[in-house]
Design a protein around this nucleic acid. Structure first.
Lengths: 111, 111
DNA sequence: ATTTCACGAAACCATTCGGTTGCACTTGAC
DNA sequence: GTCAAGTGCAACCGAATGGTTTCGTGAAAT
């Protein structure tokens, strides 16, 4: 029942929806036109995304515009941060290794 | 059947496994000790992670060490990039808005 | 007031998921 | 060679997932 942002982005259709409304809010019908599934199926995805607060609905007459809550994306970014640190330090290690190899080459050339 | 990195990180146990072996490779048994599920359940998660190439096994005698393939994490980072651009530009817009409001305040004070 | 449109909710279905138990295989120890 | 340790795999199970179809509701249009 309890869903989080990671489950929200696990489904490719939901990622596509996120990408679609990233720049401008859209109604369920407009969104559904971009997929070959039913409007109701899209509606389900929207509900899940809204539950996770990745998107936010705003009513306008009889239409509902869904807008991306970009701050939720930052949560993923924050989670990634710990691994970013690792791969950056790996790069440094690689740099060190490369310069060591260069140094070694020089030494060998001298022989 | 076809799984991607986003499905791999959707499960909390798998995220915990990733965090666990991020700094040093570990064997399935050692990993399983950190969870209250069976070794086989962990083994299943490892298989999924390996399928997605998030982790890489390396045999040592009769033990298998699983190591995080940190480059796979970058894929998520690359996907996030498009949204990072958006939230950064939103900040700029917010800055603009704030300075406009300040300007407006000044105008009103004059009246 | 009646009809139409935009949408959500419910019921149902096939598939997948995450877990367990039991078994098979390979490797190191005796 | 025999035994134990470390591991993967298959079968099974209940719950969740993603989809469809049908129905209900509120707002706009007629």
């Amino acid at each position: 029942m309890k869903r989080d942002i990671f489950q929200a982005i696990a489904d490719p259709t939901r990622r596509a929806i996120i990408a679609l409304i990233a720049l401008q809010a859209m109604t369920p019908n407009a969104i559904a036109e971009h997929f070959d599934t039913s409007r109701q199926a899209v509606s389900k995805h929207l509900r899940i995304l809204a539950e996770c607060e990745v998107i936010k609905p705003s009513r306008e007459g009889r239409e509902i515009y869904y807008q991306l809550e970009i701050s939720k994306m930052k949560e993923i970014d924050e989670w990634l941060e710990q691994y970013r640190k690792i791969w950056e330090s790996r790069y440094e290690q690689l740099d060190t290794l490369l310069s060591e190899l260069k140094q070694q080459e020089k030494q060998e050339r001298k022989i």
